[in-house]
Design a binder for these strands. Structure first.
Lengths: 232, 232
DNA sequence: AAGGTTCTTGACGGAACCTTGACGTTCCCG
DNA sequence: CGGGAACGTCAAGGTTCCGTCAAGAACCTT
């Protein structure tokens, strides 16, 4: 919740106060508007990570305001509707007008907080870690890229998958069977192609560099780690 | 709901059937797993736009599976928990483990559908009609226009759709399967017309310019990136 | 009904990839 | 120490995948 900036649009003074205090106590900074006229101004002048929006407001209602945000201002900040209206049609309208979530009063403050966090996390693309890293070796699953010491490595698809598994399990040792099963399922090749793939993987990952990262434990499996334990 | 592909993980046969039929009737294609073991396999082999995940499952529970998706596989598909557990702590745990939404059984099917749509809309960057931009390439969804370096490109409708998908996923790699499914749903052409469309797309987007933006990763998929560095 | 655009199909050459097998080396355990 | 199993190295064959292109089918518009 750190460093979130949130706009709360709600005309009930009491509820607004409660929500505001809770969120600020969690580290967010919250601006408050009691109607959409003020909200309109705030939204044009400041950036908010998320908006909490009541449906029943004096003057323009929340649905309409949300739609205005999306269509006219082209703002894509997450919007959470907060309202006492619990009928299905109300919820459907909320989503239809461009809302991201819909929470019915009375709600538990921690739940509101959790939903806010989830939306912001997604907005910021923090849902998953984007790279795996072992020492100076980095693997980016989304881009299908591997770098060591900053430079891009060329790997075949299978080599990439093997490296991904080893890095995911690091520093654990991965057995040959586990690797083969994960790569090919029940259709494991007759003669062990895995050896060739590991050879090619090594050629790309370790050969051009000083220290080897990829280790073999004969009869046990393979591992990738920064400090290859040397036998006692 | 057009051409969504959804993975439903739920052990109650009856409920699964109901949800599945409803979503398919809305135009989604739904794969079904009764446990996380099967779900694990499916998730590694196919792309899904979203996952519906029960919490109480035989063997591994849904929370744990979701966390595994995020941490180990680095998959960022939206996850909606579906469960009868309505206690606050359960919900908090769902979000804490990487869930995007949490819906309590029994729920109205249209609400589930609305929440699914809202999540996918956000994932696909369709909340607003803002232009997508990668380097000097701009795509305006509202006007159905594409420009590179300021000049208007002439694209066929399908080429436009492909480019839009690649741009919104950038810099992620999009598999051939994902592209085909989103373009044609269950009616994918026999022989791969996708190749021709990509060829034409390249001819329009890359051919007249200095650097290519559209990259092929053989056996993996396609991506569009500002800096298509090649290894050695 | 005609004309244009778009989509699909099929063929071809080439590149990338996976598998296989051979051979030498290392490791483990009797 | 010696033999067998496991491993590293490497090249070659076959397969899959991809870029290219043109022709015909389907579609839409007028």
């Amino acid at each position: 919740m750190k460093n979130l900036s949130i706009l709360l649009v709600e005309d009930h003074r009491q509820l607004a106060q409660t929500v505001l205090e809770y969120l600020e106590q969690e580290g967010a900074s919250v601006d408050y508007a009691g109607n959409t006229r003020l909200a309109r101004e705030l939204v044009q002048e400041h950036h908010y990570d998320l908006m909490l929006l009541d449906v029943m407001l004096p003057g323009e209602d929340g649905y309409s305001f949300c739609q205005y945000l999306r269509k006219e201002l082209a703002l894509d900040m997450p919007v959470v509707f907060m309202t006492a209206r619990d009928q299905l049609e109300d919820k459907l309208e909320g989503f239809d007008r461009g809302g991201d979530d819909y929470i019915v009063k009375p709600f538990a403050l921690p739940e509101l907080s959790a939903r806010v966090t989830a939306l912001v996390r997604r907005q910021r693309k923090e849902v998953t870690a984007n790279t795996l890293q072992i020492a100076d070796l980095e693997l980016d699953p989304a881009r299908q890229e591997v770098r060591r010491d900053g430079q891009l490595l060329k790997l075949s698809p299978t080599a990439f998958r093997i490296l991904r598994i080893l890095m995911r399990e690091s520093p654990k040792v991965v057995s040959r069977e586990q690797l083969e099963h994960e790569l090919w399922g029940d259709l494991v090749p007759d003669s062990d192609a895995l050896r060739s793939h590991l050879y090619n993987l090594r050629k790309a990952v370790d050969k051009p560099f000083e220290h080897a990262l990829l280790n073999t434990l004969p009869g046990v499996g393979f591992s990738i780690q920064a400090t290859p334990e040397t036998a006692q």
